[in-house]
């Protein structure tokens, strides 16, 4: 047989195969069991002829493999070219819920203070008059002691009106330094209306250590306000009055709607009142057995709803208690 002619014919058949089927047919015909080449190889007698035929065979096998790769690639390319998804269709839905807006603020505040080395303390919600009022230097005439403002269970037990009682419980059991925040639900006898609800949430912060100053309080409040409302916001600390702090201050943040120029949100003030703070009153320190000559401290107590409503423009606090998915999905 003419090995050269055979190879030429086989190479041409391989090259012209355009489908895997045609290529397979070429393989069977030229390299299969009954092929002329296989038969010739079986009949080979001398070494030289065998070498020639084997060379032809391996060249053909290589050609086959190459052609197969090429065909596979073109099949792939064709399918890549043809298969198109409408990528604008939605993906598979993994429905996620959301944390309540107040939990989100709560965690945000917790993280800010954890980062500064504070602890997070869980306080009680049902407390004694002793911890809510007496230990916090709130005199017998203080207005929130009145049952008109407060939910009493009996003469000595009430739903906490602020989270401050947790400060007292921590200080009573611990020597300074104390750096803590306590966040949670508080209760006041208010009729539900856009800015008031009989229960809401507060963050209480307390730092007691040697050498704590009013400047430290200003710095801490500025940091907190900037984290919550934006790093460039101006912060204003002004004088105020609370029975449990002396000196007492109130913290305002520059209005983030108008940037201080005056608008409806800040009532043309340019400033938004966020909450009260001050140096812990000496009497409060003494009440828990601390020596005000040795240590000093600052404290603040702010409403989380207020922070959220201001920051996100929510007009009505009652919406936060409706648990309507349409609202919860937004945040």
């Amino acid at each position: 047989m003419d090995a050269e002619a055979l190879e030429t014919e086989a190479q041409s058949a391989i090259a012209s195969a355009t489908t895997p089927g045609e290529l397979d047919a070429a393989r069977v015909r030229y390299l299969g069991r009954g092929s002329a080449l296989k038969q010739a190889l079986r009949g080979v007698r001398d070494r030289e002829a065998g070498q020639v035929l084997n060379t032809v065979r391996s060249r053909l096998e290589r050609a086959l493999a190459e052609r197969r790769t090429a065909l596979d690639r073109s099949v792939l390319e064709r399918s890549l070219a043809e298969e198109r998804l409408d990528i604008s269709l939605p993906g598979h839905e993994f429905r996620r819920g959301r944390l309540h807006p107040i939990t989100q603020i709560r965690r945000e505040v917790e993280e800010i203070f954890l980062g500064m080395g504070y602890e997070v303390v869980d306080g009680r919600e049902v407390e004694t008059v002793h911890y809510i009022f007496d230990q916090l230097n709130m005199g017998p005439g203080h207005v929130t002691r009145s049952p008109l403002h407060t939910f009493y269970l009996d003469d000595g037990v009430l739903l906490r009106t602020e989270t401050s009682a947790s400060q007292i419980r921590v200080m009573e059991t611990r020597k300074p330094p104390v750096y803590m925040v306590s966040l949670g639900r508080v209760y006041r006898r208010d009729t539900p209306e856009p800015k008031r609800y009989p229960s809401f949430h507060q963050v209480e912060g307390l730092a007691v250590d040697r050498g704590i100053t009013l400047a430290d309080l200003k710095g801490t409040l500025q940091l907190l306000l900037r984290r919550l409302f934006g790093d460039q916001r101006a912060v204003r600390i002004r004088t105020s009055f609370f029975p449990f702090t002396e000196p007492s201050v109130e913290a305002d943040v520059e209005c983030f709607i108008c940037g201080g120029a005056g608008c409806r949100v800040c009532e043309q003030e340019g400033w938004i009142e966020v909450g009260g703070a001050g140096l812990v009153d000496e009497n409060v320190l003494r009440n828990v057995g601390y020596d005000p000559e040795e240590v000093s401290g600052f404290a603040f107590g702010w409403g989380l709803e207020r922070i959220f409503m201001l920051r996100h423009g929510l007009p009505d606090i009652r919406l936060l208690w409706q648990n309507d998915l349409r609202l919860l999905e937004q945040f």
């Binding site: 500064m116 080395g117 504070y118 330094p177 400047a215 940091l223 600390i237």
Partner: peptide, 21 residues
């Protein structure tokens, strides 16, 4: 303090040990 409040600087407590978690 209140008369000089605006001039009071913004500082943070100087702490020797920090542990917040």
């Amino acid at each position: 303090a209140r008369l000089r409040l605006d001039e009071v600087p913004y500082t943070l407590p100087a702490r020797r040990a920090m542990f917040g978690r």
